[in-house]
Design a protein around this nucleic acid. Structure first.
Length: 346
DNA sequence: AATCCGGGGGA
DNA sequence: TCCCCAGGATT
């Protein structure tokens, strides 16, 4: 027996009894697939019952107001699903006389229906050999075949789709699709998969390599945050300045010049009118000059810092207590250290 | 290619 | 409380 036949056999014996599995009505299948996008069966089940009860046919759904549809969807999240569901119902009634499309080619055109949903409906309702690749499929295939390609990369999306397409059983593609997903949802789960009793454990690459927890691989999209720092570099006639210790966040306990952080880049006029500037700067300011006209972002793994160093010449005061000669003794971020060196050489 | 869109569940 | 889950639309 091969992978596909094992899964189908397992599915026929172990599948959960779910309402949409007792019908091939494409309206019902479509409704269930939209509800189950990013949604676990237990969460979506009551919504499916309510929708089928209130809107037994696509004509009932098309006749409803968007408010009514959204009200029934309330609490399920991702509300564009409900708006697209309603839009597509009206579209099918108006354009197809209420006859629900069942071919992949037609389904993919519907709002709210992508490759996954079109493949699911076409395979179940039209016996088309269109493999579904949802989160469950990614996980099961990555583990069973030991595939390290990131599932959220364009390379991975193509690779897994192709693999699933090569594995799909041509006699019962719909059953194969549901079998893979059901297996992933109940046996090859994201956390604590049931490897001990798994019917595929003898041939699972990830299990034999002890890398089940590592798969599937996903590239984490660490979004780079942009921050805008304005450092106030005081310089008195006696050659003194101010350093402050950072108390939280990045560079905690390192020293820096007094800092004003803003949402975007600001100019001198915006700086001197900034409320924090009025607090941090005394009235004895003589001149303000921007040291670095060209801002090179300081890049950290998760943020890019656009720092401006404002040279503020002022008279001596009690707050100004760091001699320029001694500031190099203090631990500072590389960004500050570079500035000090450049400024000293200037 | 990156970002947004909810809510459930587990650590 | 934080992290993971992940299909489709949008830009």
């Amino acid at each position: 027996m091969n992978f596909s036949n094992y899964l189908i056999q397992w599915y026929l014996a172990n599948k959960r009894d779910l309402p949409w599995r007792n019908t091939k009505n494409s309206y019902n299948i479509w409704l269930s697939e939209i509800i189950l996008q990013q949604t676990k069966v237990n969460q979506g089940l009551p919504y499916y019952y309510r929708f089928i009860q209130k809107f037994p046919t696509i004509f009932d759904l098309a006749k409803a107001s968007e408010d009514d549809v959204l009200k029934l969807w309330q609490g399920l999240g991702y509300y564009s699903r409900a708006r697209n569901l309603h839009f597509s119902a009206k579209f099918i009634v108006n354009e197809y006389n209420g006859e629900f499309p069942i071919t992949y080619k037609e389904l993919i055109k519907l709002k709210g229906v992508g490759d996954y949903t079109a493949s699911a409906i076409a395979s179940i309702c039209n016996n088309e050999k269109t493999a579904v690749v949802d989160g469950n499929v990614y996980r099961l295939l990555a583990r069973y075949f030991g595939i390290n390609t990131a599932i959220n990369s364009s390379k991975g999306i193509k690779e897994f789709k192709l693999l699933a397409q090569n594995l799909i059983n041509s006699k019962t593609p719909g059953t194969f699709n549901q079998a893979v997903m059901e297996f992933g949802a109940t046996v090859c789960t994201p956390k604590k998969p049931l490897c001990n009793t798994c019917i595929l454990k003898d041939s699972c690459v990830a299990l034999s390599n002890n890398e089940v927890v590592k798969l599937p691989v996903k590239v984490k999209k660490n979004k780079i945050k942009k921050r805008y720092f304005n450092y106030l570099v005081f310089k008195t006639t006696a050659n003194k300045t101010i350093l402050e210790k950072r108390i939280s966040g990045i560079w905690r306990n390192l020293y820096q010049f007094p800092l004003i952080e803003t949402n975007k880049e600001i100019d001198e006029n915006q700086l001197v009118n900034h409320p924090e500037f009025l607090i941090k700067c005394n009235s004895e300011t003589i001149t303000i000059k921007l040291f670095n006209n060209r801002i090179k972002p300081h890049k950290l793994s998760h943020q890019h810092i656009y720092a401006k160093f404002w040279i503020i010449k002022t008279n001596d005061s009690n707050k100004i207590s760091y001699s320029w000669k001694t500031i190099k003794k203090y631990p500072v971020p590389l960004l500050i250290d570079k500035f000090i060196n450049e400024y000293s050489n200037f």
